[in-house]
Amino acid sequence: MTNTQPRFIRVQDSLYPILLSLFVAVFMISNITSTKGVTIGPLVTDGAFFLFPAAYVIGDVLAECYGFKAARRAIWAGFFTTIMAVVAFYVAIWLPAADFYENQDAFSAILGLVPRIVFASLCGYAVGQMLNAWTLTLIKRRTGEKSLWQRLIGSTIVGEFGDTLIFCLIAAPVIGITTVSDTVNYVVVGFIWKTLVEVIVMPITYTVIAWVKKRENYYA
């Protein structure tokens, strides 16, 4: 007798897909907001400065709780999703505008900058996040479960420096930063800010890691 009951693939009860989605979303949104140059007093930065550090917080959670391979999978997911977005942006710009649509120039100007920004972001993101995850898991192999703060701070310093340096050197001319002094300012401010944010929110990172480990029966 033929079984007529519908069959479905069981979705694993894990927080990993949610964390992966948040990780990719933060990276995608940051690529759009980073196209705007921002000056706050003497500081020169971009419009993603307040959001992008969250990608490293989530990256720390992924690497600490799920390991380097799982973190690497999330990094590549963000990488290829962003490439897909760039292609979609260019197709949308290329498509003929309707007669009633009056914002084609603005649409092209904003999203037309994204590919160069995304190239810078992808290069920095891939290097920085890989360094971050690799450093965290390397330290964890030596320290075990103790000294989480060493893993978080050490991986942040290494990852954020690689990310910020590569991104800023490529992206600076796109957002209007052309002098050497402003470029140095951009790199230093970006690195210090992102690292400082991660240190400030470390109690939150600790809490999230503890909650994820408990939720995923990490110690079972």
Rank of each mutant, 00 (worst) to 15 (best):
V44L: 02
G37D: 04
C168H: 11
D99P: 08
V158E: 02
E145C: 03
V114N: 04
I83T: 06
T135Q: 03
L62H: 08
F100R: 12
L51T: 11
A74K: 07
G59F: 07
F52C: 09
F107L: 12
L43A: 15
A106M: 13
F52G: 04
T156Y: 00
S121K: 11
Q129I: 03
F161A: 11
S155R: 07
Q150E: 05
F52L: 06
L122W: 09
T35I: 15
I40G: 06
P96A: 13
G41C: 07
I75E: 03
I117G: 15
T137Q: 13
T135A: 08
E160F: 10
A70G: 00
F89C: 04
I117E: 03
S108Y: 09
Q104K: 15
L51D: 00
N103Q: 14
V91W: 12
A171D: 05
E102Q: 14
A109I: 10
K36S: 10
K36A: 14
A126V: 13
I75Q: 08
V87A: 12
F50V: 14
S121I: 03
A70R: 13
G41Q: 08
I166T: 14
L169D: 01
C123P: 00
A172V: 05
A133V: 09
L169S: 05
G41I: 12
L131G: 11
F89G: 00
R151V: 00
S147G: 06
D60G: 14
F49E: 03
G128W: 04
C123L: 13
G162C: 05
M130V: 14
L51Q: 01
D60A: 14
G59E: 01
L136D: 01
F80R: 10
T164E: 00
E64H: 06
G67T: 10
I110V: 15
G154I: 09
G78E: 08
I93N: 02
V57D: 01
W94H: 06
W134L: 11
G67I: 09
M130Q: 04
V114Y: 11
L152P: 01
A92C: 04
L165T: 15
A109W: 07
M84T: 15
T81V: 12
Q150I: 15
E145V: 01
T81W: 04
L138A: 13
P42N: 14
F161N: 04
D163V: 09
Q104I: 11
A77G: 09
A109F: 14
A74D: 02
L136I: 14
S121D: 01
T164A: 11
I93Q: 10
G112F: 09
T156M: 05
L122M: 13
I110R: 00
L62I: 14
A71W: 04
I75Y: 05
A171C: 09
V158N: 08
R142T: 10
A54R: 01
F119K: 03
T135Y: 03
G154E: 10
